[in-house]
Design a protein around this nucleic acid. Structure first.
Lengths: 220, 220
DNA sequence: CAACACTTTTTACTATCAGTCAAAGCTGCA
DNA sequence: TGCAGCTTTGACTGATAGTAAAAAGTGTTG
């Protein structure tokens, strides 16, 4: 029985492979973002990358593996968002969506491709306990301080508020990924949705501020 | 020059053809609803229908024509909706969603397949003025009476309320079509969303009633 | 710098998909 | 029953994902 032996130049080879892989992966992102998942073909990717199709399969596995990889990159990046949000609900909402928009703006192609892929593989299935959906939803939960300080009246279940806030973001994102709205409209739509949800259980003071914010959005 | 001559038995033939077509079209709906547009193949449809693929093409044209037909059927059905909704906002919301659920329940396969197809061909693009989206959105507009009678305070633009109400329905429908939620959950989710939007601009009396309704939903 | 050992790419292939065409088969009526 | 025209089918094309094994390439070491 022979031990399997690593190639002598394995470290260098792996590094090179990673570079090649990265170069092709970026082309894949661009193609998926530009044409959608349906019209993204391995053969076109191979052509654009100047290699043949088996090379793509060698580097990435199946087509669905490319999609999976996009998705896992997405999850990684999304976990870096929204770490130190402001205390005020209105500022909090703005902080959240501004962060999201900034991230999307930087790598729009990638995010649109990744979200398309994610929907396709049902990554955001809300029925999975502890799945991505559940965790993302938690981020939308109203803070305890908002109830303690009387900003929120507490007549509506916090979990209900959370779901509705998350839904505002979710639909906005779907519309953006579908190409129906741009990032400005995304920001507008998500903020409007969040403010309206907050307004449904806000103290008179907060309610007045929210109304002002909502009406201010329209004029933009 | 010969006149093209209709077959002698043309009337009977056309009637039979319509029956065959309908039978296969129903199988197509079932397959699309069950597996999604991506995994719906002409060959499987042919196999399920007990014919060969050219027959499918003869009866329906291209695969995209089947999708188009689903979409045009959907448009037709949606135009037939002539509602006579109750005056009270809460009853109005329930009336709306109960109607929707009843319709979806009756022909679930068709509606899921048709909505998938509609998304695919961007039928619901909100940017098209006077498109389906815009017209559907109008149905969600709050009534003038609600402002005149003081049920709604009028601090938030009616058009804003309309958009948010419509969005509640829209996301619920997307989740149902995607298979994430069933019709009961759809009803729950859409009502919760509509009530929360209403609550953001409701008079104290209406607000109290809405809170009760929202909290009543949870226990179901 | 040449030879080796292993990696990487490619050539050539299979299977499945949508879609086409002309020939064979069938149907409804006289 | 015979036939005109409709309907289905066998046999095909071209595009797609994916695979196996031969060919080409690469980093290291003597």
């Amino acid at each position: 029985m022979k031990k399997p032996v690593k190639a002598l130049g394995d470290v260098t080879r792996q590094a090179n492979k990673k570079l090649r892989r990265e170069r092709i992966f970026n082309i894949a992102k661009r193609l998926i973002a530009a044409k959608g998942l349906e019209d993204f073909t391995i053969s076109e990717l191979a052509y654009e990358a100047g290699v043949t199709t088996p090379t793509i399969h060698n580097l990435f596995g199946k087509k669905s593996d490319i999609i999976k990889e996009l998705v896992s990159n997405l999850i990684e990046k999304m976990q870096g968002i929204a770490l130190n949000p402001p205390i005020d609900p209105i500022e909090n909402a703005k902080f959240f969506i501004d962060n999201v928009v900034a991230v999307f703006e930087q790598e729009g192609d990638f995010y649109r491709a990744a979200f398309m892929s994610a929907e396709r593989v049902r990554l955001f299935d809300p029925r999975v306990p502890d799945g991505i959906f559940q965790r993302a939803q938690q981020l939308a939960a109203p803070r305890k301080e908002w109830y303690e300080s009387g900003l929120f009246l507490g007549n509506i279940e916090p979990s209900t508020m959370m779901k509705r806030v998350h839904n505002s973001y979710r639909l906005g994102r779907i519309d953006w990924v579908s190409g129906y709205i741009d990032l400005n409209q995304l920001r507008h739509q998500v903020l409007e949705g969040m403010f309206l949800v907050y307004a449904s259980d806000a103290s008179p003071e907060l309610h007045a501020r929210l109304i002002e914010e909502i009406n201010g959005l329209i004029s933009l």
